[in-house]
């Protein structure tokens, strides 16, 4: 199996596993699902560090956007806790 197929398969399996486990544990907060999916995406992308430079640049862009989304969610959660809602 080629390295790109392995990478996509790893992402798909991780997403399936995370969503299934969170659903089975009764989690009902969408922010938790998205945050954990983004963390898994960032970890798996980091593990495939030896992809070619053009692929890395493209994946780094997606990772940066995902990370920005993750930070926004964290900030919103912190603000929610601070405001005591």
């Amino acid at each position: 199996m080629r390295v790109y197929n392995k990478y996509i398969l790893s992402l798909a399996l991780a997403a399936c596993l995370i969503n299934t486990l969170l659903a089975l544990s009764g989690q009902d907060d969408l922010a938790i699902y998205v945050a954990i999916n983004i963390i898994a995406y960032l970890i798996i992308t980091l593990l495939y560090a030896y992809l070619n430079p053009r692929a890395r640049r493209a994946l780094n862009t997606i990772a940066a956007v995902s990370f920005a989304g993750f930070i926004v969610m964290v900030v919103l959660k912190v603000m929610e806790i601070w405001s005591g809602k």
Partner: peptide
Amino acid sequence: SVPLTAVGISAIIIGFTCIALANT
């Protein structure tokens, strides 16, 4: 359903990754 929404969001993330890899 929140879990199914999460599945949809995961599909979008993986979809963008596939597009990015195909363009390289």
